[in-house]
Amino acid sequence: MMHTGCTVLLGFLLASAANAENPLQNDPHAADVGRGVFRIYCSPCHGIRGQGARGPDLTQAISGSGKSDDDLFRIVSEGSPGTEMPGFTGPLDEENRWRTVSYLRSIAGQRPAPLAGNPAAGRDLYWGKAGCAACHRINSKGGRQGPDLSRIGSARSASYLRESVLTPSADITPGYNAIVVVQKDGKKITGVERGYDNFTAQLMDSKEEFHSFDKAAVASMKLESRSLMPDTYGKLLSASELDNLLAYLSSLGRPEAGK
């Protein structure tokens, strides 16, 4: 920590730090090595080429976002609060985090085209006809059976969200698989996983009540790689309604959403 009596100088230094450029920007190997780091630590969520999966498409999300290298470094280091993006200060030293930033800059292409839909109309659909709030929460309102969507627009690409709405079981957020338990009296209980191991299962049913089971005390219990969300939204919603809903979901958690 630098100590100085000159407030003006300190302010300048802080401003410079906030807009710090990548110290490895002239290193010819930085992006190359950063790609190796990315493939190990980042590709599980962002895809092997950064084109997005559970995490956003970074080839599109960075350009035009106004994020400086320092912003990207901070996200890589500390994660993105409110999303599943963790910080990598532990596993990656400072140089490797900067190399990751170098690689991200090297793959950043054009900013994605604005979505066709109308977010305001999508909001009405979400809270009305589509019934999404029965299972999902946004800013502390709604159900708990599905993932909280308060910041889903900053955590998922639009194409991923489209797939999630139309084919909910295509890729399931960890912790939201279905558990089906058949008790010894034949009674079947289905719910969202809260825990599942070699000997026990914990689930939340559609009334948001918790159940805990001992494998030895039931007829069967199974974790199923499927979502409990209906897969009928392709039929329930028209193409334009779907665009509106996706425009609303994509706006959640984005700073420009309020504009």
Binding site: H29, D32, V33, R35, G36, V37, R39, I40, S43, P44, I48, N96, D171, S225
Partner: peptide, 24 residues
């Protein structure tokens, strides 16, 4: 399993790619 190319730099990751789970 994926592979990629990368120049060796002393002391740095030199794994040349990684794996992804098979979908589903």
């Amino acid at each position: 399993y994926y592979k990629t190319g990368q120049q060796y730099v002393k002391g740095l990751w030199y794994q040349l790619s990684t794996t992804e789970p098979v979908p589903k």
